[in-house]
Simulated scan of single mutants.
Amino acid sequence: MGSDSDLPSMAAAIAICEEFGVAHEVAIISAHRTPERMVDYAQNAHLRGLKVIIAGAGGAAHLPGMVASLTPLPVIGVPVSSRHLQGVDSLYSIVQMPRGIPVATVAIGNAQNAGLLAVQILASHQPELLQQVLNYRQTLKQSVLDKQQRLEQLGYSQYLQEQQEQHSG
């Protein structure tokens, strides 16, 4: 991440890696304040055994693109919400990469999806991890089916009231 202020957003990616048992590292590397460190990290990541990099940044959000320009690994960019432009500036910065330097980009502040995408990339060559992804998807499906069943049992008005109470208390 570009700054420690990005950690609350990036924590969801870390949690996904932990949930799936994927080894990971967490680092603060600023494209602007520690450019030499960023270059060294990105150029040597594959030599250290990394397989994918999730890079989160807010504001100018140069970290994901700069890392992608320096590494042969897949890079997933997480636009972190900023005070002034709510992360739209970060999103535009990350998705507007020149041809030849791709950065997969998730929604503003959605580090959970970045973590899931990283896991899916790794799972493409790891059958055990692929099975975990399939199981995870099944839990998502079951969650929706359970909600539908509850909605049918309660009716929309009571279901909505229950949802509002859960979110307010």
Rank of each mutant, 00 (worst) to 15 (best):
Q148V: 11
G49V: 02
V52F: 05
T139P: 07
R83S: 13
R99P: 10
Q96S: 15
G109A: 12
L140I: 14
V67C: 07
R137C: 09
E128W: 05
A60D: 10
I121R: 08
R37S: 04
G109C: 13
P64A: 01
H46N: 12
A123C: 11
V75I: 09
G155L: 08
R37I: 03
A60R: 09
L122K: 13
D89L: 14
Q138I: 07
A42V: 03
A107M: 08
I101W: 06
V39Q: 02
E152R: 05
R150S: 14
T71M: 06
L91K: 09
L140Y: 08
A55I: 02
R137M: 10
A68K: 12
K51T: 10
G58W: 01
G77K: 05
V144F: 14
A68H: 08
I108V: 14
L116I: 06
K51Q: 15
Y41L: 03
H125M: 14
I121K: 10
Q153G: 05
H125F: 14
P127L: 00
R37N: 01
A111E: 05
L151K: 07
G56H: 05
V144L: 15
G87W: 00
G109S: 12
V119Y: 11
Y136D: 00
R99A: 13
P72V: 03
V78Y: 01
A55R: 02
P64K: 08
L151A: 05
L129F: 00
Q149M: 08
Y92A: 03
S69W: 02
S124M: 14
T139F: 08
Q112W: 09
A68L: 12
L50T: 10
H125A: 15
Q126G: 06
G49E: 06
Q149I: 04
L91P: 05
G59T: 08
L134G: 00
K141W: 01
Q148E: 11
G115C: 10
N44S: 13
Q132C: 02
A61K: 09
A55H: 01
Q148W: 11
M66R: 03
A107Y: 04
H125S: 15
M66F: 13
H46D: 14
L145E: 15
L70E: 02
V95I: 15
T71V: 05
L140P: 10
Q120T: 15
I94R: 03
I121P: 04
R83M: 10
R150F: 13
I108L: 11
G58P: 04
N113W: 03
L154Y: 01
M38L: 04
L70N: 03
Y41V: 01
K51M: 12
P74A: 10
P64S: 03
V119K: 02
L63F: 02
M97L: 07
A61T: 10
P98A: 10
M66W: 07
P127V: 01
L50F: 13
Q120V: 14
P74K: 11
R48I: 00
Q138A: 15
G155H: 03
V144Q: 12
V78R: 07
T71Y: 10
H46S: 15
V106Q: 03
I121V: 15
A104Y: 05
P72K: 01
Q138W: 01
N110A: 02
G109Y: 12
T139D: 05
L145N: 14
S82Q: 08
S124A: 15
Q96P: 12
K51H: 12
I54K: 09
R48A: 06
S90I: 04
L47S: 07
S93C: 09
I94T: 07
I54N: 10
Q126I: 13
A57D: 02
L117K: 07
V95D: 08
A68D: 06
A111C: 07
